[in-house]
Amino acid sequence: MKWKNYLIMFIMLFVFWLLLNNSLEKEIVLLGFGISLVLPFLLCGKCEVFTNLSLSPKAILYSFLFLFTFLIALVKANFDVARRVLSPSLPINPGIVEVKTKLKSKIGRVILADSITLTPGTFTLEIIDDSIFVHWIDVQSTDIQENTKLIVSQFEKYLEVMYG
């Protein structure tokens, strides 16, 4: 299982090097390849971050779908903020609500929390066990199940396949 962590770490470092250098000359590519081959072994005492990441074709398809959903939600969030900011009466109705997540892995929860932060009107305050505390700019209900359905489930169905 450890080799998957090394492989993903290597790919990430190598892609980051290529993007940062922004060129495909032979020396640069070879140097980056060598450095990013060695670096995971020096830095990763115990890399367990990506152990739960699934690499099946379905998971890869779902990660693209997730990205798509996320970008649409991000644009919607911004128009929502713009509408609230520009209207003279400032229509806000804020509150802190609790939602539940089914995800087990740490990285899955981190990505879920980040996506909640960038979607319309909500952002994550704290994760305790399996409950996420969300600050909501326009509270519609205080029921946990209903809020989970409204806020979390649109991302959770993709992240469940990707990270389990």
Partner: peptide
């Protein structure tokens, strides 16, 4: 502010 679930918890 309407509710503060975290405070209750």
């Amino acid at each position: 502010t309407q509710v503060d679930k975290w405070k209750e918890r």
